[in-house]
Amino acid sequence: MALSKVNRLRSRQDFNAVYRRGIRRKSRHLTLLALQQLHSEKSLLGSISTRPTPETASATPTRVGISISLKVSKRAVVRNRLKRWLKVAARSLLWKFPVGWDIVVLVQPEATQCDYRQFLQELEQLLINAEVCDGD
Rank of each mutant, 00 (worst) to 15 (best):
V72R: 02
R10P: 02
D134P: 00
W85F: 08
R63N: 08
L123R: 00
L44M: 14
T112K: 14
C133L: 14
Q36F: 10
N7A: 13
Q113Y: 02
T53V: 10
S69V: 07
P52Q: 12
A130F: 03
T31Y: 01
S92Y: 06
A17R: 11
R51C: 06
Q113L: 06
L86D: 02
N129G: 06
K71Y: 03
H39T: 10
R24C: 10
Y116D: 01
P98G: 11
L126N: 04
A111F: 00
S92E: 15
N16W: 03
R8L: 09
K74G: 15
L93C: 09
G100E: 11
W101R: 02
W85D: 00
A17T: 07
A34H: 03
A111E: 00
I66N: 04
S58E: 13
V107K: 05
K83H: 09
Q121A: 11
R8Y: 01
F15A: 12
R75L: 13
S40T: 15
L45S: 14
E41Q: 15
L123W: 00
V105I: 15
E110S: 15
Q13S: 14
M1F: 04
K42H: 14
L44E: 12
G100W: 08
L86C: 05
M1C: 04
E122F: 05
D136Y: 07
Y116S: 04
A17Q: 10
E131P: 00
E122P: 01
A57Y: 02
Q125D: 05
V72L: 03
L93K: 00
S49Q: 14
S73D: 15
R24N: 11
V104N: 05
R25N: 10
V78P: 01
P109Y: 12
T31K: 07
I48A: 14
K42F: 14
K87V: 01
Q37W: 00
A89D: 02
S43H: 12
Q13T: 11
D134M: 06
G135V: 03
P52H: 11
H29F: 10
I23E: 14
L44R: 15
F15Y: 14
D115K: 09
H39V: 13
T53P: 09
T62S: 15
W85K: 02
N129T: 06
R51K: 14
L94S: 06
L70D: 13
R51I: 09
L30N: 03
P98E: 14
R63S: 10
S69I: 05
I48Q: 14
N16E: 13
H29L: 05
G22P: 02
A89V: 04
C114Y: 00
N129C: 06
K83P: 03
T31H: 03
L70R: 15
R51M: 10
F15I: 11
I68A: 13
V77F: 08
V72E: 00
A76W: 04
K26N: 12
K87W: 07
Q108W: 01
N80C: 08
L127K: 01
L3I: 07
S67W: 00
R8F: 04
I128N: 02
S11G: 09
P54F: 11
A2E: 11
L35E: 01
R51D: 09
A76R: 05
Y116M: 07
V105M: 07
Q13Y: 09
L94H: 02
F97G: 03
D134N: 10
K87F: 08
K71I: 02
I48C: 09
S4Q: 09
L44A: 12
S58K: 11
S4C: 08
I23T: 14
Q113V: 07
